[in-house]
């Protein structure tokens, strides 16, 4: 299957390793991956902050870039939720591609029908289900099923996993104090698990969580779960 990678702007600039891992993973599973270079940003931050007019051209750009693909995958629950939930309302022509855009675990489990991707990761890992993946995309336990199948991986439950980490896009800046209070509780919960790695499906939330962990000097690594599944072997 020929799959287009929508990397997202945050990953392009800050977390290219996540993109590389997705490419490696899908190619290892025998699929062809394309990265159309006209892609930029999904426009979520604009749309969610009250700048709909600024978001609409970005939505159009997305449709122009990806409408010709059978499947689009993005390593971000939040951006996929934006595409699937909000795009058709902003630009009706986006309705088609919106249904063919998948978060990585949806593509793997629902479309490609794999849970064991042949990865090896001998570490203790805990997983934070980020809000948009959890409540808008209803990813459920798909990412967990993928992680459980990883050889050597010791998956430990995260207490209060379903509670928001406090990132919330511009919320992290506009309501920095509340965001920080939420982050503190999340970081404590993560540290209490004794995990070496905190994984999630969104690098933006992980930037926030990782920023908090590193500030308190916690020896926990943050990793997009794609990097575990598509790690270099």
């Amino acid at each position: 299957m020929r799959i287009a990678l929508f990397l997202t702007c945050v990953n392009d600039l800050l977390y290219p390793d996540t993109g590389k891992a997705v490419v490696r993973l899908l190619e290892r599973l025998g699929h062809e991956v394309d990265f159309p270079e006209s892609q930029t940003c999904c426009g979520q931050m604009h749309a969610n902050s009250g700048y709909r007019a600024e978001a609409v051209p970005l939505v159009r750009g997305f449709v122009d870039t990806f409408d010709r693909y059978d499947a689009v995958v993005a390593p971000s629950g939040s951006c996929v939720a934006m595409v699937r939930e909000s795009y058709p309302r902003l630009v009706p022509a986006a309705a088609g591609v919106a249904t063919r855009t998948y978060e990585l675990s949806e593509l793997l489990v629902d479309v490609l029908g794999v849970t064991d991707v042949g990865a090896v990761f001998p570490h203790r890992v805990t997983y934070h289900p980020t809000c948009h993946g959890l409540r808008m995309l209803r990813l459920g336990d798909k990412p967990l099923r993928l992680l459980r199948a990883v050889e050597g991986l010791d998956l430990v439950p995260l207490p209060g996993a379903e509670e928001c980490c406090g990132f919330g896009g511009t919320f992290a800046m506009k309501n920095a104090d509340v965001s920080t209070a939420m982050l503190a509780d999340k970081c404590t919960a993560i540290c209490d698990t004794g995990a070496e790695v905190i994984a999630a499906a969104d690098n933006s939330c992980l930037a926030h969580i990782g920023g908090g962990l590193s500030r308190r000097g916690a020896p926990v690594r943050v990793m997009h779960y794609a990097e575990i599944l598509g790690g270099e072997s």
Binding site: C164, G166, G168, G169, F171, K174
Partner: peptide
């Protein structure tokens, strides 16, 4: 703006 839009 007093929300992360977490959807709970």
């Amino acid at each position: 703006f007093a929300s992360t839009l977490c959807g709970a």
